[in-house]
Amino acid sequence: MKLLKIITVFLFSILIISCKKNSETVAQEPVINSATPVTVAFPTDTLSINNDISINATATYLLKSDVKSNATGYLTNVRINLGDAVRKGQFLFSVQTKESRALGNTINKLDPSFRFSGVTTVTCPASGFVNSLNHQIGDYVQEGDILAGITDASSFGFVMNVPYEYHEMLINNKNLEINLPDGKTIYGHIAKLLPGVDPISQTEKVLVKPNDNVSIPENLIVTINLKHQQNDTGIYVPKSAVLTDETQTKFWVMKLKDKNTAVKIDIVKGVENNNNVQIISGNIGLKDQIITSGNYGLENNAKVKIEP
């Protein structure tokens, strides 16, 4: 009986010591801080974003005319060379029929006053430049044969493929800057929007005509600047501060309600560049602290800790 009491006292002492150690261990465990570390920045209203875009365009003559023979015979005169500038109605070729070459001298001998030659003239169908010359003096040609090719100078322009998302910019841009590879800048205007969109790239073809007569070689690649309609109203925040949903239709920022609490603020974006975004509307002031890092995945009224 005395042995049983000794064993009971011993076990009870061990139990008390164990509980005391557990309580000390619990007391010594560090308290977990659940606040998210973040960095913040203040908005500004003094920034102006240039959101212009540059698109490549190709110099093109849309209309090319063929100079065709109006009779079957021999070329007796060629008045042009490759690359010459020509005007509409200009005399280019002479064609003498085979029959007239055989009979002409006989008829003239019988009656010199008749002055029969059987020679017809071929004139230029449009003003422009000679881009091809297919025959020379003495060649025998058929009626309808193409003697030369003429690029129509009035059809010159720059063709660019513009993503349809910039369609409104095309409407707003009346005077366009055309930058040539040699550093020169000329100005032009949108002459025509072709009524169709490429099914793969979703771009539309746009013809830009220069305002002045310029001599530019075909297939030259230039850049054309499209300017956004400037809107300086609103304030600007760093781009990293703006969050969006999966469909990129809703946008918001996280701002500090107090030193340790972040709240979600819905916004409407304006123009943007690689670093900043314009805020057109939203409950944001210049003295608000906007979270720029650590904001991803934060819930409304989330606990945060500002890092230096």
Score class of each variant (00 low, 15 high):
2 K>I: 11
4 L>I: 15
4 L>Q: 11
11 L>C: 10
11 L>Q: 06
21 K>I: 15
22 N>Y: 08
24 E>M: 13
33 N>K: 11
46 T>P: 05
46 T>E: 14
54 S>V: 03
62 L>Y: 09
64 K>Y: 02
67 V>C: 02
68 K>C: 04
69 S>M: 01
74 Y>R: 15
75 L>G: 04
82 L>K: 12
85 A>G: 09
109 K>Y: 09
111 D>I: 12
118 G>P: 03
124 C>I: 01
127 S>C: 10
129 F>Y: 15
140 Y>D: 11
141 V>K: 04
141 V>D: 01
142 Q>D: 11
143 E>R: 10
152 D>P: 09
152 D>Y: 07
154 S>W: 04
155 S>R: 10
156 F>G: 00
159 V>R: 07
160 M>H: 00
171 I>Q: 09
179 N>I: 13
185 T>A: 02
200 I>Q: 10
208 V>K: 01
210 P>F: 00
219 N>S: 04
222 V>L: 07
223 T>F: 06
229 Q>M: 01
231 N>R: 04
237 V>Q: 02
239 K>H: 05
242 V>E: 03
259 K>R: 11
263 V>S: 03
268 V>N: 14
273 N>S: 05
274 N>A: 15
281 S>G: 07
285 G>M: 07
292 T>C: 10
297 G>I: 10
300 N>Q: 09
300 N>T: 08
306 I>E: 10
307 E>M: 12
